[in-house]
Design a protein around this nucleic acid. Structure first.
Lengths: 190, 190
DNA sequence: TGTACATCAGTGAACGCGCGTTCACTGATGTAC
DNA sequence: TGTACATCAGTGAACGCGCGTTCACTGATGTAC
């Protein structure tokens, strides 16, 4: 049953990607290794051929999920801050249970996780901040970064709350208002 | 061993309060019924004399935890929006693992929870929004509420991210910047 | 007010279950000659 | 290039453990007369 190095590497990537989706859909604690291995089309026994522990795959899944978000943001970024914010705080992102931003889907669990995971999530947070900081070219780099830190934090909070709330109108209001307020930042100085 | 009605009611309150602290410290899934009953000074077997299910105590713990936050905000509110934001986004609140705001401590888990829990969390969210909306007396009520929705969402995101991030400077920057940006809202129109 | 009995808050053992992790095994891949 | 053997990706059963929930039991509280 041994697979070639290429196939094994591809399998590993598939597991990380499936893990990112499953964690974002159901949460870290609520997702078992069997669940994510099944989502990758494998049985759970093989997990430890690729990873040291569940924590390791959580960390890698975070990085993987954030890479997707960052790529999208970089693409939208050519059209300005508004485009990034609109995509991040869209109904579509809110409804996409898996495949969305891990910071929003897993935020409170990540904050309680241990260093390995938090370090990985931090790194992704920083990279997302840096992408958004580029949307404030008129500010000096430090001020732009500071603005971007606020934008990312506020977007994460808004997306999380819009998913938590049971009233659909309130959910939409959270997204709308956050979009409006964050769009304003572009024009004004730091 | 039967306790008087008064004692039983007091015990119930103690369990809910202990639950709020334990959930906020370790997360919902990571806190067992034994943990929270032990935190209330009881053994786990008695749990179902007071609650239908774990979900029920989660819902009540959310409401309980948010009541504390709302009371604090109402108190600070007499000194204006800045005072509320300063307290919510303080290092002190960030470091207080238990006893803080459940929306920040449990946000992503709440977003994935079922209706009973999400309805309870929503209710608390709305009440907190209403308290903060009073800080925009110059706006018409609807606009004030809309502003407040943004303030709460942004504060929740900022507190969560400031707890997640491993770099202490970045953690402080998240709080500082969010405070600064949210303080600005007071003056300007909706 | 006193007595007899039902109620029920709290205990601690037990239930089935799924968790993260380990392991013996399989057989194709990689390697040494 | 062909052959012999070591490697190891993936399988599926098994491990101990703690979960949420249930239950028989205890004995003080509440209630009916």
């Amino acid at each position: 049953m041994r697979k070639s190095k290429l196939e094994a590497a591809e399998t590993r990537r598939r597991i990380v990607s499936a893990a990112a989706q499953e964690f974002c859909r159901n949460g870290i604690h609520a997702t078992g290794l069997s669940d994510l291995m099944a989502a990758a089309g494998l049985t759970h026994g093989g997990f430890y051929k690729h990873f040291r522990s569940k924590d390791q795959v959580v960390a890698e899944a975070c990085v993987n999920g954030l890479e997707t978000v960052i790529e999208v943001a970089e693409g939208e970024g050519k059209s300005g801050l508004e485009a990034i914010v609109e995509t991040y705080l869209s109904m579509d992102h809110r409804n996409r249970l898996s495949g969305g931003c891990p910071l929003a889907a897993l935020g409170s669990e990540l904050a309680q996780a241990d260093d390995e995971i938090r370090a990985a999530a931090s790194q992704g947070f920083i990279r997302l901040v840096d992408v958004i900081a580029k949307q404030f070219p008129q500010s000096d780099p430090e001020a732009a970064r500071a603005q971007a830190v606020f934008v990312v934090s506020a977007m994460v909070g808004a997306l999380t709350m819009s998913r938590m709330v049971t009233d659909p109108d309130l959910s939409a209001l959270i997204l709308d208002q956050s979009r409006k307020q964050l769009d304003r930042l572009q024009g004004q100085g730091a």
